[in-house]
Write a protein that binds this DNA or RNA. Sequence first.
DNA 1: CGGGATCCTCTGCGATACTG
DNA 2: CAGTATCGCAGAGGATCCCG
Lengths: 132, 132
Amino acid sequence: MSRKSGQNIWIGSTCPIRQVLDRFGDKWSILIVELLSHEGKLRFSEIAHTIGDISQKMLTVTLRSLESDGLVIRQFFPEIPPRVEYELSELGKSLVPHIQQLSAWGQTHMDTILENRKRFEEKQQKQGKTAY
Amino acid sequence: MSRKSGQNIWIGSTCPIRQVLDRFGDKWSILIVELLSHEGKLRFSEIAHTIGDISQKMLTVTLRSLESDGLVIRQFFPEIPPRVEYELSELGKSLVPHIQQLSAWGQTHMDTILENRKRFEEKQQKQGKTAY
DNA sequence: CGGGATCCTCTGCGATACTG
DNA sequence: CAGTATCGCAGAGGATCCCG
C-alpha cells in the first residue's frame, strides 16, 4: 500500500506489472506479436527469416508459449511437406496498441537516453578511476 | 520491410521495440519507475523496503542505470548518516502512462492467459506422454 | 518444412561480507 | 545509511544433430 499517494498500488509479486513483465519480459515474445500484427498470417520459416537472428529453438519455444497462453493461433496443415501458419488471436491483437505506444516512445526518446548514458560514462571516467 | 502491409516496420536489432526491450526488459527497471511515479521521492532504503524482494545489489545496479540514462534523478545529501533520494526525471515521467497502460491490460487479461495456459497443459498431458 | 532432443555457454541475479 | 566487491548458481538462450 502507498503512504503518500491516495491511489491504490501494490508492488508484491502478484502485482499486474510484474505479471506482464514475467510474461513478456523475454527476448522474443513481444517482437513476434508485433511482427504478426503487421503481417497477419505467417509460416514458421517466414517468421524466422524476417526476424533473422532468432534460433529455431527459441522461435519454437516462444511460439509455443504464445499459443499456450491464447495469444497466437496455430494452424497445422498435414501436407507434404507440412505447413504451419501463425496469426494473432483477438487477445493477442488487444495487446498490439500498447506495444506500439511503447515503440513510439522508444523512437522519440531512445536517442536522448543513449546520449545521457554516454555522457554519464564520460563523467564517471573523469571522476573515478584515479584512485589506485 | 514489410511485404503485405503498407506500414513501415522493420525488425532488425535497431528497431524501436527491441531497443525498448533491451532497456526495460530486465527484472526491476519498470517496477522502480512505476513505484517512483506513485511515491514521488524516495530514499534508497524506502525503495528496498517497499519492493521487499529485491537485493541491495540489484537495487543499486538498477538505480544507477536509470540515473545514467536520465530517467531518474539522484540527490545525495552528505550528512551523517548519509541520505540519498531518488525521483523520476521528466523523461522518466513521460514513460509512466505507457507502463500503466500495460499494467491495466495485465489486470484485465492476465487471468484469461493463465486459464488458457492451464488448459493447454492439460491437453498436452492427455495427448502426448503416451508414446514411449 | 517444422519442429524435438541435447549439449553447452553466458549472464542476470541473489547471497554474503565489508566500508565511508 | 547507502552503498561496493566478490562469489556462485540457475536458467535463458544459442548451436548442432535428428526425425516424420
